[in-house]
Design a binder for these strands. Structure first.
Length: 338
RNA sequence: GGCGCCAUAGCCAAGUGGUAAGGCAAAGGUCUGCAACACCUCUAUCACCAGUUCAAAUCUGGUUGGCGCCU
């Protein structure tokens, strides 16, 4: 059965998404893909936006970029606020500029939520959120319990209350806040947004590997980070006054090493926890991608771990989806699979 | 060879007669302004055999395995 609503129109501009769990090898592949199809990379990564957080966020180095333009990396100091809405604004602007240059934007990175926000152009109804109300709600939760807040939500938006677990204070607060700001239920809003089709002609690739190999890679990469001086990097950030209350310092690698530097654990323990948390993160990422629609899974083992074959497959898909004109794609031989 | 102690899920570990706490790991999931966040779900019949008892992981005997001490 063909999805009738998803036909492409001439208006839709091309967009390539390349994502996957941490440590699968997105970075290298995205650069090669960009080189091959004339693309520019927009990082969809909530940590690589911060300057000075290079090792722990596994940020691309300039030499690795091999001349491919990268956007939304190193754009903020670690004490600056950043979130989906900001990301979406900036990413949309980048996409327009890249299109204007006649290039193809490649959204590459592991933050699924950020990808979703731009891919489906989700409306976050810009309002000047009033910090006081949020703080008030948080205080209520702390003083009177998570259930109390959840009850409040149940009164104004029972659907959300039903969907959000009472213990998930963060989300309950946001739902309440949304109601206060807009007078509408966030559950209804979410439902509307969920119906949206992408404004882009896109291909959403999720690079994946066998779980055991992925976990082994993660462990190895953490060890490499330590060898490359993650400890010094975090110590430097700490000296500058950045602390664990900041979103940036909540990132994997920073949170754990900071705990060691604050004397709360041993270094070995910090590294162990970092590896474990990173595995947990990879697992959560996979859960996210599994429920995203229109995803094209690219399992490395099915391509014999050969990036050339993977790239060939990807370009073939891009031609098929008319994201790429056949003459731009070189040979499209070796198309495998369905 | 003798004496003593122990044996509960992948790991740690409660439970000493009334029908298996908890933590970690693994797995699955939620997510629409903090998302590398926050949150949820979930795994055993208690080494084995026999006995006592209305009832045993819990008591008794034996078997196996481990640990410690002694000769």
């Amino acid at each position: 059965m063909q999805e009738r609503e998803n036909f492409v129109t001439e208006e839709q501009k091309p967009l390539v998404v390349l994502t996957g769990p941490t440590a699968v090898g997105k970075t290298e592949l995205s650069i090669r893909l960009a080189g091959r199809i004339g693309g520019e990379i927009i990082s969809a990564d909530s940590m690589q936006v911060y300057r000075g957080m290079d090792i722990g966020s596994a940020k691309v180095t300039v030499s690795e970029m091999r001349g491919i333009p990268h956007h939304l990396i190193d754009i903020l100091e670690p004490d600056e606020e950043f979130h989906v809405v900001r990301f979406q604004e900036r990413a949309k602007r980048c996409i327009e500029e890249i299109h204007a240059r006649g290039k193809i934007p490649i959204l590459a990175g592991g933050t699924g939520f950020y990808i979703q926000a731009v891919l489906y152009d989700i409306d976050f109804t810009e309002t000047q959120s009033d910090q006081n109300y949020r703080r008030e709600l948080e205080k209520l939760a702390a003083d009177r319990g998570a259930d109390f807040l959840h009850e409040m939500l149940k009164k104004v938006d029972p659907e959300s209350a039903d969907a959000i677990h009472a213990n998930n204070v963060k989300r309950v607060v946001r739902a309440l806040e949304f109601y206060r700001e807009t007078g509408k239920k966030i559950s209804a809003h979410n439902e509307e947004e969920r119906q949206k089709n992408s404004p882009y002609r896109f291909a959403y690739f999720v690079l994946n590997d066998e779980r055991g190999r992925l976990y082994a890679n993660i462990d190895r990469r953490v060890d490499q980070m330590m060898e490359r001086g993650l400890l010094q990097e975090v110590a430097r950030l700490k000296e500058k006054g950045y602390h664990k209350g900041m979103v940036s310092m909540q990132g994997l690698g920073y949170k754990e090493i900071l705990e060691y530097l604050d004397g709360e654990t041993t270094l070995d323990e910090a590294v162990r926890i970092l590896k474990r948390d990173t595995r947990h993160f990879a697992k959560r990422q996979l859960t996210w991608f599994r429920r995203e629609k229109d995803v094209i899974w690219v399992n490395k083992d099915q391509f014999g771990y050969d990036d050339d074959r993977i790239l060939e497959y990807m370009t073939a898909v891009l031609c098929e989806k008319k994201i790429l004109a056949p003459e731009d794609a070189g040979n499209r031989s070796g198309r495998t699979g369905d």
